[in-house]
Amino acid sequence: MGKSMTTHDVRAWYGAQLTLKGIDMTVDANQVTAIIGPSGCGKSTFIRCLNRLHETGSGARVEGSIRLGDLDIGEIDPVDVRRMVGMVFQRPNPFPTLSIYDNIALGLRLGGIRAKPEIAQRVERSLQLAALWEEVKDRLHTPATALSGGQQQRLCIARALAVEPDVLLMDEPASALDPISTHRLEELVASLKGSLTIVMVTHNMQQAARIADKTAFFLNGELVEFGETKEIFSTPSDPRTEDYITGRFG
């Protein structure tokens, strides 16, 4: 089951440039939260802070506190944080030298699962959760790179789900996909709702409106508005949000 995440005064830098200017936000457990905003608004940086990935970048730095349930992730080994907070990236990135099966099994093996039947079982379950099982069950041991882009992205979701995280971060997961693949991905996210917490960055407002319970609007490194998706899109309280969703900029 998913956990909530709460951030308090999170500020992030790339070198000398402040890209997040103090974010206070609570992501509810087992819901889908969308983060929207124009390019460069800090939305990707924000979710990369949630699994402590931002700090691995060149010259990158984070301040403030982030809690996962009642844990302060700043005080946990980042490796352990990332096992609890999984991530799917803008472009599908299956491990290029591994088969479909091993792409998923690797995380399980590194997580300490040795028994082959258990690994096989969890690989299958993850692929089913990611709605990929039927398409790949006959070629599990072929290279993952031979899959189509949409399949690769679902494989990455399966890979993340296999280690049973509390939270799944998705950084514009459909941006490199065609409309059909995007549709299937949205269905998949909808089907996962309720079983874990999902935070999804998107520049596609329709997508946010379709699948998110709550939506946050970021602008210039600040959280402008955060609330129920319906309200954000119908009655935004901040004029900047209204300008953005009505397409006046961004």
């Binding site: 990332r82 096992r83 990236f89 472009r91 990135n93 299956p94 491990f95 995380g107 997580g111 280690v163």
Partner: peptide, 10 residues
């Protein structure tokens, strides 16, 4: 991107 895939997986 490949390396982050691994890092992101813990």
């Amino acid at each position: 991107l490949y390396r982050e895939g691994g890092i992101g997986l813990g």
